[in-house]
Simulated assay, not measured.
Amino acid sequence: MSENLNKLTGQGVSIWLDDISRERLRTGNLEQLIREKNVVGVTSNPTIFASALGKGDAYDAQMHDLAVRGVSVEEAVRAITTYDIRWAADVLRPVYDATGGVDGRVSLEVDPRLARDAEKTVAEARALWWLVDRPNLFIKIPATQEGLPAITQALSEGISVNVTLIFSLERYRAVMDAWLAGLEAAQAKGLDLAAIESVASFFVSRVDTEIDKRLDQAGKPELKGQAGVANARLAYAAYEEVVASERWQRLRAAGARPQRPLWASTGVKNPDYSPTLYVDQLVAPGTVNTMPEKTLDATAARAAITGDTVRPFYEQAWNTMAALKEAGIDYDDVVAVLEEEGVQKFEASWDELLESVTKNLVP
Rank of each mutant, 00 (worst) to 15 (best):
R252E: 15
L8T: 11
Y278G: 02
S156E: 13
V279E: 00
F203H: 00
S2H: 15
V106I: 13
V71S: 09
Q217C: 04
Q281A: 09
G12C: 12
G28Q: 04
D280V: 00
P285M: 06
T144I: 03
S44T: 14
E157S: 01
V279M: 11
D60I: 02
K37Q: 14
S168R: 03
E339N: 05
D216P: 02
G225Q: 04
R126W: 07
V279P: 06
D84A: 05
L108G: 07
S274Y: 03
K325I: 01
A154C: 15
K224C: 03
L277Q: 08
N270F: 03
S2Q: 15
P292V: 03
L108N: 01
A188M: 06
A185P: 06
D65P: 03
L148I: 15
T9Q: 15
F138K: 04
E119P: 10
L33V: 05
V110H: 02
A348R: 11
V357L: 13
G267V: 10
E352T: 14
I139G: 00
L17T: 00
V310F: 04
A304C: 14
V310A: 02
R86M: 04
D84C: 10
L128N: 09
Q344Y: 14
R302K: 15
D60E: 13
R116W: 15
L128D: 09
A254T: 01
I151M: 11
Q11L: 07
D272Y: 08
E184I: 00
L354H: 05
D333G: 08
P285W: 02
E315F: 10
S107M: 10
P292E: 06
F346V: 13
S201I: 12
I211L: 05
M291N: 04
P221G: 04
R214Q: 03
N136V: 07
A61R: 10
V106Q: 14
S356G: 15
A174F: 07
G104C: 09
V343A: 13
K140Q: 10
V68T: 09
R78Y: 04
L131R: 00
S107A: 11
F203G: 01
S198D: 01
G219L: 06
W263N: 10
Q259L: 00
A284Q: 06
P285E: 07
A154E: 12
L180W: 09
L92M: 14
G182V: 05
N231S: 09
A317R: 08
L191D: 02
A218F: 02
A218V: 03
W179M: 07
Q11Y: 14
E184R: 01
Q153V: 00
L92K: 10
A186L: 10
A348T: 12
E157F: 09
P135W: 07
L251K: 12
N29P: 07
T295S: 15
V279K: 00
L282M: 10
D330F: 02
D117R: 14
A253M: 04
K189P: 02
A195V: 06
W248Y: 13
V337K: 05
L169F: 06
Q62H: 12
L169G: 07
A264K: 08
L324C: 00
A58P: 04
L148M: 15
I80Q: 12
R173S: 06
L5I: 08
D103N: 14
P135A: 13
V110F: 11
L33M: 06
R214A: 06
L354M: 15
D84I: 03
T295Q: 14
Q281M: 13
S168Y: 10
D18C: 08
Q226C: 07
